[in-house]
Design a protein around this nucleic acid. Structure first.
Lengths: 334, 334
DNA sequence: TTGAAAGCGATACCAC
DNA sequence: GTGGTATCGCTTTCAA
């Protein structure tokens, strides 16, 4: 493997000059620059990133820590992040926390060890709780939170307006005449709590009694909970799920029970995943601007890397209510 | 940031000893080892990975290069790879090639620059073509191919038995009485070609005429092509798609046209994605053992990292035919 | 504008 | 079993 010394020797210059040609070409006289570039090409020289990193004390790498990449919401975000990172010459290290604070911390430490340039984190509920009390990121790394965040964030973050989205979704249901609406709420994230709050506010505003099942954010949990609801003597009129996994679980349960929306049970929720549009009729959802969320997070991170001292920024994006047949009222009288 | 020198000073030993405590603790007398570990804890010392990497000439990092992480097939694989990597103290760098040979090469170079320990690659058709001619990976990095590979591979690889799976799927359709079966085939991968071959063989064995539309592997392409088919005077009896994206596109087209499977057009394809089970009736598919594919690839890579000289290994996994209602015959007579 | 040389933080060889 | 020291490849003062 050719090193910078070989290039310098071949071009008849010092390693400093070669280094300058790489980093600040304008600081080198054209003649020398061309000689060096020729030597680089001839030797097929590629800079050693480890050496550069050791010297500069930081790597062109960002960490992306999400609960589970298989959740399409996070998949889309990761794609957006990777796209932007690529454009800016940054690598993305992918980390699944599984909502486990220990694993999350291990990954944060790792990113610190790697001297990563920054981290994009969908924090666990535990992290959010601690971050609400403590000061800014203990790691000292540039950090952007996505999807979840304490209300008083010390870090940049990109969020959906969760309470509002849940409020609008719930209002849509009540306006269609449904009254007995159960919420399947993700219990492990602040996102689930915000959406729950929006739901409860909308229910109470309509004089209805909220009913919430707090669940782990998995397909299995959504399915089991819905199965339970369907087995009740007085089955609920509508089921609302605060994320795509719970919603999918609920749909599986309906499917297995041979029930249809809206005639048997109305169904709605978050995340405009592929399958929701393909039902007969389609499932009403709040579509999140996932790609935008990822891009915005990356932009925020790049800005903070450039200006570590700037004020904390908070980007709140709006969800889009996609009304489909699964909530088409009016509900049957009871 | 505390360095190894600080630890050495505090423990009253040399840096060599500290380094040994980190790498080969058994080579250090217990008394010293404890003193060193205490010093490490007290200072909160963490080894500088860049320095280690520079010295050792390799990083605890593996690259994962796929066409697009948003394809659930690759999402699942990435999750499996990340799980195994985490267990073995390796980081995963995520790369989307978009089936673009230039981007793929850029990422391979990057992995080489990063001195990655290895790469798991879902190669572009271009790469496969070149690899069939040339020798083993020019990069010199330990490399495992997934999903696609030349027939005479110089690299380890993990593949589905594509021709067999497509053959079984096609036979299932013909056995149900369908005769006029069109294949939507991914044109950008060797996988698509193998599946096409299996389809053609099965069709010919039944005395039927294959009809293949070679398409880019996108939802949009699958949808457009299917739309075209539906508009033909004599609409095909069945549509078969060689991957999940094309299949989803086809379903979108049917959905938009208000057509149902199997009564209007039978539908089947590859990849047991969420939505396929949720149709009324469900869509018949070949389920790929995605998580297994990812794990196997990672295992192969770890073994090759340990034993660079060992013979090339090729793991071929079987797909599982999930028969659902979308292909329930018999077909209408023509 | 260019070059010489120090140093980033760890490992590994070689004495002892 | 332990310590001294050269070294990995690059960037970055500092002088010229």
């Amino acid at each position: 493997m050719a090193s910078i010394k070989d290039v310098a020797r071949l071009a008849g210059v010092s390693t400093s000059t070669v280094s300058r040609v790489l980093g600040q070409p304008d600081a080198v006289r054209e003649e020398l620059r061309l000689r060096v570039q020729e030597a680089i090409a001839e030797l097929g020289y590629r800079p050693n990133l480890a050496a550069r990193r050791l010297r500069q004390q930081r790597a062109s790498v960002i960490g992306l820590i999400v609960a589970d990449i298989r959740n399409p919401f996070f998949t889309d975000i990761s794609r957006a992040v990777e796209d932007m990172a690529y454009e800016h010459g940054l690598r993305v290290i992918l980390c699944n926390s599984d909502e486990d604070p220990a694993k999350e911390q291990a990954y944060l430490d790792l990113m610190s060890d790697e001297q990563a340039s920054g981290v994009i984190l969908a924090p666990t509920a535990d992290y959010v709780r601690r971050a609400a009390k403590a000061g800014p990121g203990a790691t000292g790394l540039p950090l952007v939170l996505v999807d979840r965040s304490p209300d008083m964030a010390h870090s940049d973050c990109v969020l959906l307006d969760n309470a509002d989205a849940a409020h609008r979704l719930t209002r849509h249901l009540t306006s269609q005449g449904w009254r007995d609406i159960v919420l399947l709420a993700g219990a492990h994230s602040s996102t689930g709590r915000s959406r729950r709050a929006g739901y409860e506010a909308a229910m109470q505003a309509s004089g209805l009694t909220p009913r919430v099942l707090a669940l782990p954010p998995t397909i299995a949990a959504g399915q089991a909970a819905t199965q339970g609801l369907l087995a009740e003597p007085l089955r609920p009129q509508a089921v609302l799920a605060t994320n795509g996994l719970l919603l999918l679980g609920a749909q599986h349960a309906l499917h297995a029970a041979g029930l249809r929306s809206p005639q048997d049970v109305a169904l709605a929720g978050f995340d405009n995943n592929d399958w929701t549009a393909l039902q007969h009729p389609g499932v009403t959802v709040i579509a999140q601007p996932t790609y935008d969320i990822g891009r915005s997070a990356c932009e925020l991170l790049l800005q903070r890397m450039r200006e570590p001292g700037r004020g904390v920024r908070r980007i709140v994006l709006q969800g889009e209510l996609l009304v489909r047949g699964s909530t088409e009222g009016p509900a049957p009288a009871r």
